[in-house]
């Protein structure tokens, strides 16, 4: 089912440069969907800082390595709400695969690996955030049996 030569592992210091690039591309892409996603003019430099912060944080950050090259990543934040029976929820905040490597199940593989780790942590649910107008993401998650769970609305202050 999955591409041979594909390897998913937690992000580490050696991935800094590549991860920064992927983070930047992820946010540049989202810019398309709503003015509220517009990037800071120093976004590229900030993406580097973020990459450094992600690595070694409590977030679950995995990278997909293909032919010894990092071609995609996923970042999941676990949020707690103790009034809910499920207590903890894994939220996919960022997911990106470089275009030349799409259509090979890499994103699904990143999610599958992340889900396994979440399961080990006792997390019962995994959710995904993406811009409301991103119909490609919507189709993708629906195909992986995700269902609509939370709506988020926005307006200018």
């Amino acid at each position: 089912m999955y591409e041979p030569g594909l390897y998913v592992r937690p992000a580490s210091e050696k991935d800094l440069e590549r991860l920064a690039r992927l983070i930047y591309r992820f946010y540049s892409f989202n810019e398309e969907f709503d003015p509220a996603w517009a990037l800071d003019e120093d976004a590229e430099a900030i993406a580097r800082e973020l990459a450094g912060e992600y690595i070694g944080s409590d977030d679950l950050v995995l990278v997909a390595e293909y032919d010894n090259e990092v071609v995609g990543y996923i970042r999941i934040v676990v949020v707690e709400n103790r009034i809910l029976a499920s207590k903890r929820l894994g939220v996919i905040k960022e997911l990106y695969v470089l275009p030349p490597f799409r259509g090979r199940g890499i994103a699904s593989r990143l999610i599958a690996e992340a889900q396994e780790r979440l399961g080990d942590m006792g997390v019962k649910h995994i959710s995904a955030e993406f811009p409301a107008a991103n119909y490609v993401a919507e189709r993708f998650y629906r195909a992986l049996s995700f269902r609509p769970y939370l709506s988020m609305y926005l307006r200018e202050v």
Binding site: R25, F29, F33, P99, P100, Y135, V136
Partner: peptide, 25 residues
């Protein structure tokens, strides 16, 4: 081309061109 700067935008706005970029490389 899959490495074109606007490739992600094409995915949303013109998936036909996007697929060609990916398929032809």
């Amino acid at each position: 081309h899959p490495h074109r700067d606007d490739i992600d935008k094409l995915m949303i706005n013109n998936p036909w061109k996007y697929r060609i970029a990916l398929e032809t490389g």
